[in-house]
Amino acid sequence: MKKIFLKNGFNHKTPVIQLIFPYDEELKQAVKLLPDCHWDTFQKVWYVPYSDNQLDMLLKALRGKAWLDYSQLKKVAIPKPAPLIPELEPLDTESAKEVAAFIDWLRNKRYAESTIETYSGALTTFFRFLKNKPLKDVDNQDLERFNKEYVLARKYSASYQSQVVNAVKLFFSNRQQRKLDPEIVYRPKKPKLLPNVISKEEVKEILNAHKNIKHKAMLSLIYACGLRRSELLNIRILDIDSKRKMLKVRQSKGRKDRFVPLPDKIIELLREYYKVEKPVEYLFEGQNQGQKYSEKSLENVLKQALAKSMINKPVTLHWLRHSFATHHLENGTDLRYIQELLGHSSSKTTEIYTHVSIKSLQKIRSPFEDL
């Protein structure tokens, strides 16, 4: 009897059950008749919504048509829907003017656009929560109430809480010439999360998944040089020095330039790519020549590679950068050099990779072996 493998998966962060089987027209037609069954164009797989009784429904619906292998299917905890919280009032004209002036001030101070977007968004939310209260009347209690009744009530992250405090503090000290005391809103301790890393074998599968030379070159360059997503998309053709085998990364995080070495295999791949695509200004351009490739399209390139390589981990582009650093450390590269390659200002940022490197841990003998 024909076999269908059932595996856990996600569709837009929603848990689903994937139905995996070699192409078979009869099975395809049978699966299409399942309630709420859909085709994922990126992962190239059929899926149904996850529920505790979904397996029983699948077994019943496909009885006599296919044998279901659910050995890799795991139970998933479905979070309860959060209670409804009233929406905030729209921003009034005066408050909008203040936010616009704050944005102009940030730009004049040459803050990064991502920081400007984060700070202005946090400040806008703060004003809306206060129902456009006159700025001269805003005090510490308002900030404390916002933290309790909005940030904590909606279970936003510790980093978001810090961003709001930073935005409000900066606005009132530089735009209103008075200080609120953000210390009353206790700064949450940031959770110490370890970076996500995949093995060299998994990296190889992802990089070799695409036959399209452009897609392969983009993912390969991120891993080969430990680049951030924005750094890859901002590379111009002139930034590549093939004779010196170096890549100049311009104005990355912290508005810093840095050089990273280009491996010979990457140079060969980029030469092959250039002959095919012939970019004009940026190394990787979108449908229109001279315009950068979009971030969303790059994310889709990775999703397609994961689907083709049958890797079910929620790998992101930044995982490739983390893996680059960790694999360097495991190969014996000095931590100071890794810091330079990644463009970290502080060595403490780079030191986190010592906690995920398994080379030294694998040498440790467990006392269990002596029992």
Rank of each mutant, 00 (worst) to 15 (best):
K44R: 13
P134F: 03
K243H: 15
E330K: 14
Y274Q: 12
E295I: 02
P191M: 05
T14Q: 09
K131L: 03
V99F: 07
I85Q: 14
M246I: 14
L262E: 00
D36N: 11
L170Q: 10
F126R: 02
L6W: 01
H210R: 03
I85P: 06
D142S: 01
K60D: 13
S323V: 11
M310T: 10
Q72I: 06
K200A: 10
L262Y: 02
L306E: 06
T115N: 04
K359F: 13
S159R: 07
L302K: 05
I352V: 15
K243T: 15
K80H: 08
G64Y: 04
G286P: 09
R187D: 10
H355K: 14
I20G: 01
V31D: 00
R250E: 12
D24A: 00
E285V: 09
P22V: 06
I240S: 06
G332S: 14
K200V: 08
V197H: 05
E26D: 09
T125Y: 01
P191K: 07
S297P: 07
K74T: 08
L6M: 09
L219Y: 00
S346E: 13
T118E: 07
D370T: 12
R154N: 14
G226F: 01
K148H: 11
D181I: 09
A77D: 11
V151T: 03
V151E: 02
P15D: 05
S173H: 15
E113A: 11
L361H: 14
N53W: 07
F127T: 00
I266D: 06
S120C: 02
K245R: 14
A122V: 03
I267P: 08
P90W: 02
A66K: 00
T316F: 07
P195R: 08
S297M: 11
K190C: 01
S159A: 13
N331L: 13
H210K: 04
Y293E: 01
L19W: 00
V260G: 05
D69Y: 07
K3N: 03
E89S: 15
R128Y: 01
K253H: 04
K359S: 15
D24R: 00
A153V: 04
Y23S: 06
D264E: 14
Q141Y: 11
Q43L: 11
Y223D: 04
A158V: 01
A305R: 06
P79L: 07
F284H: 02
D24S: 00
M57E: 12
A96V: 04
V356L: 08
A305K: 03
L306S: 10
D142Y: 03
K275G: 12
I338F: 10
